[in-house]
Design a protein around this nucleic acid. Structure first.
Lengths: 203, 203
DNA sequence: AATTGTGAATTGATTCACAGCT
DNA sequence: AGCTGTGAATCAATTCACAATT
C-alpha cells in the first residue's frame, strides 16, 4: 500500500471490484490474475501491478481470494462507509441519473438534488430542492462529492459555490473544463466529445 | 498530418474544437496556443504537439486563425458530413440522451433508437423501434456508430449483433467491458466507476 | 516581440522476465 | 506446477528548450 495511487490505477481498481461483484457468490473461493484481467479487459501483469498498490494478499500458486480482494479494494477506494452525494441539475440527464438508482453501487447515496425548478420531479425518492438551498446544504451536511448536470453557461459559477462550501470532488457532465483549485478533483464525462472522438476512427 | 493519431490526442482535438465554438463569432481572428490551452485545461506545448498531427497552419508570432482551425479540426475528426448514429436502449439514460438533443453537436444525428418496449417514448422526434428491427436497420442503412444504453446482462449479445452487422464504433454506457474484435473501437462511459473512483481522493 | 513547430529530455505507464511462495 | 510480486526494460505521453517565422 503506497502513498498515493495514480488516477488511472484507481479507475481500474474500481473496475476490478465491479468485475468481482458477480463472482462473490460463486463456488470458487479464488480467482487468478489471468482470469480477472480477462474480465476487466487488461493484461494480467497490469492487474498485478495495480493490486500491488493495495498491499499483497494474493497467494502464489492459487490466486486471490475473491471475498478478501473485494473487501480490500472497497476499503482502499474508501467506500466502506456510505458516502453522501448531491446532484445539481435535474434536467434530462440529471433526472435520468436520479431515477436509475442503478447508477450508484454500494457505498453511495444521492441524498439530494438541486434545480432551478425544484417542483419539477416528484417521481424519484430523492428530494429536488431549490438552488438557493445548495450552499447551506453542502456546508451543513459536509457533503464532499457532487454530480454536476447543468448547462455549461452556469457550471463554473455553481462549481465555485460548491468548492467554496467544502466540496472536494466533482463528477462533471457539463460540457466545459472547470477551473478548480488543484486539490479538488474533477472527473469529466463529456458525452458529446466521447461520441465525436469515435468518428475519427471509423472507415 | 501523420498516419494515425493516438486516442488521447483525438479526444483533446475534439475538446479544442468545442472550446473554439463560442469564439468563432468574436472579433478576434486568431488565438494563441496559450489562450486556447488555458480554455481546454492543458499546457500550451501539449496543444501545439496535438495540433501538429493536423498539419501546420499556425502563424508564428500571431497564433491560429480561429475559423480555419475549427474547420481543420472538424475535417480531421471526420464530421464534415453528418454521421448517422443509433441508440440502443431507451430506458432512463437512453431516453434522456434522446430528449436532450443537446447531446450531439454538429456532425451527428441519432437517426433511430431501439428498445424492447418500442411504444415507450413518443416524446422525442426520434423513432423508437423494436429490437427485432435492429440488425436489418444497421445493415441496410450502413450505420457505423452505436450508443449502447442497455443493462449489462444484455449488452454483450447486442454488441455482437451490432458488430456482426457492420457497426465500427460503440459508445458504451453498459457497466461491463465489451469483448470486440480489435478493429472495433469502444468508448466506455461508466458512470458508477467515475463516481466511485472519486471517493479515493476525498479526505 | 511574439508565438509556432519540433527534436531532445523527461516523466509516466505498461510489459517483460523471472525469482520466490505455496 | 502454478501463480504472484516486482525490478528492469520498454514503450508512450508530456514537457522543455530553442530555432524558425511573421
Amino acid at each position: 500500500m503506497k502513498e498515493t495511487i495514480p488516477r488511472k490505477t484507481v479507475y481500474r481498481l474500481s473496475l476490478y471490484n465491479r468485475c468481482l461483484d458477480p463472482l462473490r457468490e460463486r463456488k470458487d473461493e479464488t480467482i487468478s490474475s489471468e482470469a480477472l484481467a480477462e474480465l476487466a479487459g487488461v493484461k494480467p501483469t497490469q492487474l498485478r501491478k495495480d493490486l500491488a498498490y493495495c498491499g499483497q494478499f494474493g497467494r502464489r500458486g492459487l490466486g486471490y481470494n475473491i471475498r478478501q480482494l473485494h473487501a480490500r479494494l472497497a476499503a482502499v477506494l474508501g467506500h466502506t462507509v456510505p458516502q453522501p452525494v448531491i446532484l445539481v441539475g435535474a434536467g434530462n440527464l440529471g433526472s435520468a441519473l436520479l431515477r436509475s438508482g442503478g447508477f450508484p453501487r454500494e457505498g453511495f447515496e444521492i441524498v439530494a438534488a438541486f434545480d432551478t425548478k425544484p417542483a419539477l420531479r416528484q417521481d424519484s425518492p430523492t428530494p429536488v430542492l431549490a438552488m438557493s438551498r445548495l450552499k447551506r446544504f453542502v456546508r451543513d451536511q459536509t457533503i464532499k462529492i457532487a454530480i454536476l448536470c447543468i448547462p455549461a453557461a452556469a457550471a463554473q459559477e455553481v462549481c465555485n459555490e460548491l468548492v467554496g462550501n467544502g466540496i472536494q470532488a466533482i463528477l462533471n457532465f457539463a460540457p466545459l473544463v472547470l477551473k478548480v483549485p488543484e486539490q479538488i478533483i474533477v472527473n469529466n464525462v463529456d458525452l458529446a466529445i466521447e461520441l465525436e472522438s469515435l468518428s475519427y476512427f471509423i472507415k
